[in-house]
């Protein structure tokens, strides 16, 4: 690509990003206006929600960059649980998916079972998880791992299976030793699919984090249900919107990692 077209393209992307955020700001403004018009306790003004949020998050001392207790006691622990469990699930899922995908028969037997397990609503397993692990972080992790594992496994299997005959032949004709096979050929080839699975399961991880916290009574989930029952609607709205922000940020971060790792892919670019 020549320099001029690259610059033009970058300009176009910047331009569309500006429009995107303008529209976003307009939506917030619209919310404010509708809320003023509706004048309902359930539907507070955007400025009120933001002010409440600032109060909750930025009430701390200066040495902590103003970050309030809520950041350290609620947001960060919730995030740590979700991300930790998701990472654990990624490890198990990729290993399991690679093993299943490399075997010529394992998926014949396990495919149906995994589709079934994926269709199980993880929420309804909460009672079982509570009995097994007690109420606490272990239960939360178990619930998140159980629900994020299957998309990762299935995508990894798919990716591992996508290694074509020509690549296999090439790698063999170049004398690739068996023990390097998975690391050098199979996993790199499967990486795009694995990342698709990781992204999918990241959003599921946040979902299950909220569920487990509502059921188990901790973190953001607890704040959501408490603010509802104590009629603190601006704060309730704030937590809902914060989940949107967190989801957006985490997804963007993962996309950035993906772009770094999958930089070799031809069709990468402005489609994020």
């Amino acid at each position: 690509m020549s320099i001029t077209t690259a610059a033009a393209k970058r300009g176009r992307i910047l331009g569309s990003a500006a429009v995107t955020w303008l529209v976003f700001a307009a939506a917030l403004l619209l919310w404010e206006l509708i809320a003023i018009g509706a004048d309902s306790v359930y539907f507070p003004r955007m400025t009120e929600i933001v002010a409440t949020g600032a109060d909750v998050l930025l009430s701390g001392p200066a040495w902590r960059l103003m970050l309030g207790d809520a950041v350290f006691d609620i947001v960060l622990p919730s995030l740590a649980t979700a991300l930790g469990a998701w990472a654990l699930s990624a490890l198990i899922g990729v290993a399991l998916g690679t093993a299943l995908g490399r075997s010529s028969w394992a998926m014949d037997y396990c495919g149906t079972l995994i589709s079934f397990l994926r269709s199980v609503p993880p929420v309804t397993l909460m009672p079982a998880f509570m009995v097994m692990f007690g109420i606490g972080v272990q239960m939360e992790i178990a619930a998140i791992v159980f629900s994020t594992l299957w998309p990762i496994v299935l995508n990894t299997v798919d990716g591992v299976r996508s290694v074509d005959q020509v690549k296999t032949d090439t790698a063999r004709s170049l004398g690739t030793p068996r023990r390097y096979w998975i690391g050098m050929i199979v996993l790199p080839a499967a990486m795009p699919k694995i990342f698709a699975g990781l992204r999918l399961s990241l959003s599921i991880a946040i979902l299950l984090m909220v569920v487990a916290e509502i059921v188990g009574g901790s973190g953001i989930g607890l704040r959501l249900s408490t603010t509802q029952s104590t009629v603190q609607y601006p704060e309730m709205w704030f937590w809902v919107l914060l989940l949107g922000v967190l989801g957006y940020a985490l997804n963007s971060a993962l996309l950035a990692v993906e772009r770094l790792v999958l930089g070799w892919q031809p069709t990468r670019g402005d489609d994020a």
Partner: peptide
């Protein structure tokens, strides 16, 4: 011994420079 295949787009490893 080395082999060159017809289908270069599949024979080269796309993730390697």
């Amino acid at each position: 011994l080395a082999v060159v295949f017809q289908d270069y787009s599949r024979s080269l490893f796309p993730w390697l420079t």
